[in-house]
Amino acid sequence: MRTEQNLTRLDRLFARLDREPERPQNLDVPRMSPHRIVLLGSTLVFYGLIIVAVINTTWLVRLDWQLMFFRPYQQWPELHAFIDYYVVLGQRGPTAVMVLAWLGWRSWRQHTLRPLLMLGTSLLLLNVTVGAAKIGMGRLGPHYATVIGSNEMWHFGEGDIFPSGHTANAVVTWGILAYLASSQRTRRYLSAVSAIVALGVGLSTVYLGTHWLSDVMLGWAAGLLILLALPWFEPLVARAEAWIFALRERIRERRAAAALPVGVPAMFPQRAPADDEVPAREPIAATVHQSRVHRTHPDRAHPERAHPVRTERAPVTPVGSRRPHPERVARSTPASPVTGG
């Protein structure tokens, strides 16, 4: 009879996560160092300067219009097919799926949910901050511009182009791989690769005419701000991971208790009853033994025996004789002849 339960996919996943971690013990987790704080402050200032320059219609807006009239997609049409595919590296859906697959495998191998939780945190921050800026400034894109030389701001409900979502998403999605690297050397290499990818995605949108150059610059700054601020969320992610694993253990215990057949005691430790909670009772074996002994021979109790004493009686002779009656004659015996004198 099989007593083991049929494991579901979720059980097998958690069983895999229960194995010993394969990640290095000296894993380098980024901290909010003074160098990072300086970079965060500088990027925040750069972010504000771009917004001020666009709102005041400065030289940056004039540069936007010059690039728009230049129409790079007409100057180099042979690049159009390649850039149409390359710009997908900045779309949120495809990039999130690719990065999620990689970080999910890492979580599986390293016995931790930190990579997945950090990815979710960064994407949440990206949607909140960039989405709020897009809706709050309402800028129209180059293809929908109405007045030449204007900043095309405050078109609420129509414009949502500032900052560039493609660019910010490329910075965060590919930059999170560098942030979660296991060593400083790997982090430097991945940081360079992610920066090149994000730079190319931003310039691709300018080439296609879907974004102003200032949109791309603000998208770079918005994505970098999120990456630089992630160490502040590490304690929250650690508490969330501990809570998820504790919840998993409680669910396991409930499922194990519910799967036990009727009549089988649970495999969890029970509280022993106190001395005052147990009523005083006589031993059942002794009571049965005494009752049986007294029922057979009240004067011959043998406490040293564990079984009742059998009564030894003399055999009783049956009433009457078993010899055949002299007057009875067997039917099968023939009668003897009578002899005369």
Rank of each mutant, 00 (worst) to 15 (best):
P72E: 02
G341K: 02
R62L: 08
P77A: 00
L213N: 01
H325Y: 07
V130L: 03
R92Q: 14
L180Q: 09
V278S: 05
V54S: 00
I51V: 11
A132M: 06
R239H: 13
G157M: 01
L227G: 04
L67C: 01
H289I: 00
D215K: 07
Y189D: 00
W105Y: 15
R71C: 01
E22F: 09
Q74V: 01
E277K: 09
L27H: 12
L126D: 05
V171Y: 03
A257E: 14
A280T: 08
P77S: 03
V206H: 03
W243T: 12
E304Q: 11
T43A: 05
M98H: 04
E234R: 07
R310T: 13
S332D: 10
A81V: 04
L63M: 11
L10Q: 10
I196E: 01
V264F: 10
E282K: 10
D276V: 12
P337S: 13
P308R: 01
R239D: 11
A96I: 14
A198Y: 03
R328M: 02
T146M: 14
M98K: 06
H294W: 07
P235T: 10
H294N: 06
W105L: 15
A192S: 03
T333H: 00
R310N: 07
W108K: 04
L113E: 04
I226L: 07
F69Y: 14
E158P: 03
P334G: 01
S321Q: 11
A221H: 02
V288S: 10
I176T: 06
H302K: 03
L27V: 14
Q74R: 07
I176Y: 04
D18G: 15
G120N: 00
R239K: 13
P269S: 13
A330Q: 00
E312Y: 10
W65F: 07
R322L: 12
T146H: 06
A286E: 12
L208K: 14
V97H: 00
S164F: 08
S291M: 11
A335K: 05
L27W: 15
A240D: 02
L44T: 11
R295L: 12
A96C: 03
L203P: 02
V216C: 02
R16Y: 10
T296Q: 13
A170N: 02
L119T: 00
T296G: 08
A15C: 06
V45W: 09
L39H: 01
R12L: 13
H143V: 07
E158N: 08
A168P: 05
I51H: 04
E4G: 15
P269L: 12
Y85C: 09
R254W: 13
S194W: 07
L199F: 14
L40M: 09
I135E: 11
L260N: 04
L67F: 11
L44K: 02
F162S: 00
I135T: 12
G131H: 08
R255H: 13
L67A: 02
W232Y: 15
R62P: 01
E4M: 14
R109C: 04
I176Q: 06
L60A: 13
L230W: 03
G320A: 02
G263V: 14
V130R: 01
T317A: 12
L117T: 00
G340H: 08
G120E: 00
A81Q: 08
A132K: 01
L203D: 04
A274W: 09
A221Q: 03
I37K: 07
A256F: 09
